Amino acid sequence: MFKQYRDPAPVPADGLAAALAPFGQSRMLPREAYVDPAVFEWEQRHIFSGWTCVGYAADLGSVGAQKAVGNGPNGILLVRGEDGTIRAFANTCRHRGHELLACDATTRGRSIVCPYHAWSYRLDGTLRNAPGFGEQDGFDRDQFGLAELRLQNWHGWLFVDPSGQDSEFSEHVAGLEEVVGPYHPEDLTVVARHSYELATNWKVIAENYQECYHCSSIHPELSRISPPTSGENIELPGSWMGGWMSIVEGAETMSLTGKSGGVAIEGLSERELRSVMYLVGYPNLLVSLHPDYVMTHLMTPLAADRTHVECAWAFPKDVAAEPDFDPSYAVDFWDLTNRQDWAACESVQRGLSSPHARPGPLAPDEDGVHQFVTRVARAYAGPADPAAAPR
């Protein structure tokens, strides 16, 4: 939760109050939260400017590796320095503001070079060379280093706080170490990735992920392996949320046959070997912890009604290194399930575009959706007592 005061989001106050009501009495977020560009812009400034997942440390594997993510106010340049440390900088040159690297582009070099006027920076962000300024009196290159942003490498996932004003990262992930730690995601290898661009709001995707009330209707393959009414949600003190679902007797993992084409992650408990933990790394990382692999969905909101999703599957390194290893048992299962979900999410977005759409109630099995909706609604509402907020 941000420490600074901010204006509330441009959503109806009565709709916000209804979303914040106790579970069993509450409603979904106001329609404007999903379709209004003004709300989307507010979210970019106030939700996605705090701790947000921006990718994987393994994608910057060598010194000089550079990758640009996001754009506009949250445009970020990730760089692995000479000391092996990954740093995050605002993706803007200190000369005229040109992007140092185009969004989603990657490169590698001993310097960070702006393509506009060739200003160059060391990998730690300090200015190396500004063509034409060498003999200029009063030019102090120490004043023109790149703007460094707070970054945390947590279990191989990179999180950046562009605002510099979010809570400490330890608060963001409070209560998660004992949930995520046993799977050692940082020691797994990403073997496959799929990219999807969806015609829906990012929150619709997260809400869909937070419930299996829909599973018996649209996921027959999943429902055969994992009973839709199994498991329960967990309460976490930090910014994450989620819950687990069990795997049927005789099945080993989530696949079309229930069989695994790999091996179980070493050191998992009997409960972890018989279930899948689904977590929302608020706001944009969805993590599924399986007995034999870890799957992530990394969401990048593009507009009120458009979201890019990258799905990645990571397996134990020794398994991934086998020449005949085939990850399709997991990839094919979840690609099918994803596409079933995407069709539903895009239909929700089309339905919400109707001026007659009104926030509906939550079913008893949608307590996970209530967790997510109330977290967003609290962000929309801003501080309870603005007068007490720091000036």
Rank of each mutant, 00 (worst) to 15 (best):
E135Y: 10
T92A: 15
G97D: 07
E272T: 03
G368A: 09
E270N: 12
P237V: 09
D335M: 08
A264N: 13
C114R: 01
S195M: 10
G238F: 04
E177F: 06
R108H: 10
A147W: 09
L16M: 13
L101I: 04
R27S: 15
R306W: 07
T257K: 02
C212T: 00
Q44G: 03
F89E: 01
L285M: 09
E266Q: 13
N208H: 02
A90K: 14
L149A: 03
G84E: 12
Y380M: 03
L256F: 12
T200N: 04
E272D: 15
D124A: 07
F23C: 12
Y278P: 00
H172R: 12
H95A: 10
V69I: 12
H172L: 07
M241P: 05
K67F: 08
G61E: 14
G72T: 10
D140W: 11
E99F: 08
P364R: 05
A388K: 14
A19V: 05
R274P: 07
A199G: 13
L29F: 05
C93D: 04
G138M: 05
G61W: 08
C93I: 06
T106L: 08
D367Y: 15
V39Y: 00
A102F: 08
V309C: 03
R271K: 14
R271C: 10
E186L: 07
R80H: 12
G97A: 05
V376G: 00
Y209K: 01
Q143R: 14
I265K: 01
E252A: 08
E366V: 06
Q371T: 05
S255W: 00
N284S: 04
P323H: 11
A206Q: 08
G262N: 01
E252R: 04
P115V: 04
I205M: 09
A303P: 10
G15R: 04
G368S: 12
L77Q: 03
V331F: 06
A90R: 15
T126E: 11
H308V: 11
G55H: 01
D187T: 11
L176G: 01
N71D: 14
H95W: 14
A38V: 10
L336P: 07
G145M: 06
Q136V: 15
L222F: 00
